[in-house]
Design a protein around this nucleic acid. Structure first.
Lengths: 232, 232, 232, 232
DNA sequence: CATGAATGAGCTTTCATTCAT
DNA sequence: AATGAATGAAAGCTCATTCAT
């Protein structure tokens, strides 16, 4: 799996929202309303799952949150299990967008640039997670326990995040501002682990100040460790 | 919470295994058999939970695995939820024993000692996880999704692990082989995150060779980052 | 508790039958059907409880009697215990209606009137009980053994019946056709006891003729006592 | 059924306690201990059933009360249902003894004697019921709801009590101090009903004073009726 | 198309009873 | 004879899913 697959994680990949620049056929009003409701159901499900957990959430809970009949749910999604994938898709897309936009791996060329970029990415993540702690809660706490398939998907996401990280490392090695002997994939995993730790910590201490210090500590561990020793 | 509390994680703490040197009251044969069956039920539950997940496991599944009536389960545990705590207790105790024995934080006094100790600990963990991947699977994948209380407990465990790590760092700072300006608690969290990453990776790649390289990468990140810059 | 509370015996008193003259909101067909099924479930439960007893009756038995899924039961009632209150409510209402209509305590003014009224009431009760002996069976035989709360309720009903009787006695004392030194509440209890005896007897001898003689005997005790009159 | 059958109510009638004057074979110490424990189990069962109800009582509850293993129960009684009959037997015997001793129907010959005797009997009953309200509670509240057979037995007891009462009435009619046109069986039922009412009332108002007034009211109804006497 | 009434598979839990020790 | 560990039938209840309206 590679970072380029970021947007294609769900088997039934044809239901995802089209980018706004899409030149598809113009939607009728009814169709638009349908898309909208679909979106709202996904959001409601996200909230329920993150707040009460997947197993403790009933279809009726999701429907009640939107004041729709719970039969309606089944006009938009196959079954309870089905919607989880869309909820996760959605989260991943939101995260990926926040992380990658204006932060392409090849946008930097010096260690200092890289440090700044990494700081920007860290801040983005922190902001998202602090703004809505249900995001990390669902991803790191609830999702994996849903069932075997979702556990696999969470592991996939971990791999994906590591791949993404690896792309940045790779670029740095190529340009020489990172250690040339870096074990890129494994170092990427290690770094991803530190990011996970930050997300978990945030669930207990949703304090920006605390989060800032943790980010700082992570970066301190990182740079000095992975930086090329050419700086005497 | 501190590392010293490692052995006291469950409220009903009266049924943990006695130390082997215990000179407790001599157990009758029936009592011994009871302890044994209790143990077997915990083990069977562990296996079921790790393999199928908590929610997909029925009491009947646990009982069937031992060829006992499912009513028997309720002679040993209050209810389905009750046993999870004992299963987790058990895992934590196994891990803690493996990690702390012969690896006290204050057993080392130089950076090289420390590196060796860290390598030993890493190897211990790796061995445990590779020998029985259900251990990391239950702790990192299944447990948090069981319910709110267990999610909290998993976060507690993360904190506990970080505290334990912090004890090692603290010792190193005191003795001067680690950076004096180290943000101990946060760095400990970061390191714990890398260990989690290793455990997760292992679920996908239960290959000792691969695991070895990952450990190596983690340590490379670590030492150079946290070591004092006494090498000009 | 007073006789006027006769119609308000159940805490969740909002679902009693509307008076037939009610001009409530027009019910849709679905709503009407729902009311109907609710009614049928109460009736089926009444039958099961009266015939087999509360504890020997399963939700499945009630459902089977109506050929509905047992899950449906739970759409109409919280749980097994819940429905009993409604069944009893229903019985009490049926009895109260039969007894009080056209038999207001203040509708008579002489002893002869009173005797006739008492005879009418006795006949009403007898008719109800003979038509469906499950009514006295449930009230006098099954109900009290259900649980503590229902036992209390049965005692409440006994008190209620005594209160109702007391109202008749009180009127008679006021108008002078009953003994002025009558201990109204306790005499009312005694009379209520005789009525209970009649209902119990009826379970064994559901013969109208027999019942008629018993009523007669009760009334003779009431009006004439048992002592021979020739002893001045 | 007649009053003379009072002592032979249970099918398995051979297990009852022998009268102390029995000239049976001398019991060994073990046999005596067995009889004793049997007795204690019956008493404990009585207490449990009266306090918690038959269905809410488990065999384990009875055993716990005596600090015996619950398996032991089954060495003395066939099953849970079995013991109820013995408990009821026991109660009936206690009541019958208290009522009949020194109160034989043919011990009186005038209305005044009869009144005194009736008062004595009433007081005996009241004393028993107030001393241990579990007796009326078990007989009137719990017993009938146990199962069909026990419901029948409760009705049998009612008949028995009525028969007993009838014996007194019959004697009075024969001797001329009671109305010669008395419908003896039905009047007996009516009177028995008033006694039941007294017992029920006592469960709510276990106050001797209150009970005394109720007895008085019952006797007034019996002897004088309720009608004003100014109508000759 | 939206609804929510109906359904029953499937789960947890209890407890009377048995029987080896 | 006493025990209490083991058992499994049986019950209550939930909730995802279907489908007639």
């Amino acid at each position: 799996m590679s970072a380029s697959e970021l947007y294609v994680t769900h088997p039934a990949g044809d239901n995802r929202l089209r980018p706004m620049t899409s030149s598809g056929p113009p939607l009728t009003r009814a169709e638009r309303r349908k898309q909208e409701l679909r979106r709202e159901i996904i959001d409601a499900a996200f909230e329920c799952f993150a707040e009460s957990g997947y197993h403790a959430t009933g279809i009726a809970d999701i429907a009640k949150r939107l004041d729709i009949g719970h039969g309606t749910f089944y006009r938009y999604f196959q079954n309870k299990r089905d919607i989880v994938d869309y909820v996760i898709d959605d989260l991943v897309r939101r995260l990926a967008t926040a992380l990658t936009e204006e932060n392409a791996p090849d946008a930097v060329s010096t260690l200092d640039d890289y440090r700044e970029q990494a700081a920007r990415i860290g801040e983005s993540l922190t902001r998202i997670f602090i703004e809505d702690p249900r995001v990390p809660r669902l991803l790191l706490v609830e999702a994996a326990g849903i069932d075997k398939a979702m556990a696999e998907r969470v592991l996939d996401l971990f791999d994906l995040a590591a791949d993404l990280t690896a792309a940045y490392l790779s670029h740095g090695v190529d340009l020489g501002y990172l250690r040339t002997d870096l074990d890129i994939p494994n170092t990427a995993r290690a770094i991803t682990g530190m990011i996970m730790a930050a997300a978990l910590t945030l669930l207990r201490h949703p304090d920006p100040e605390h989060q800032h210090r943790l980010s700082e500590a992570i970066r301190r561990v990182m740079y000095d460790g992975i930086a090329a020793r050419d700086t005497p």
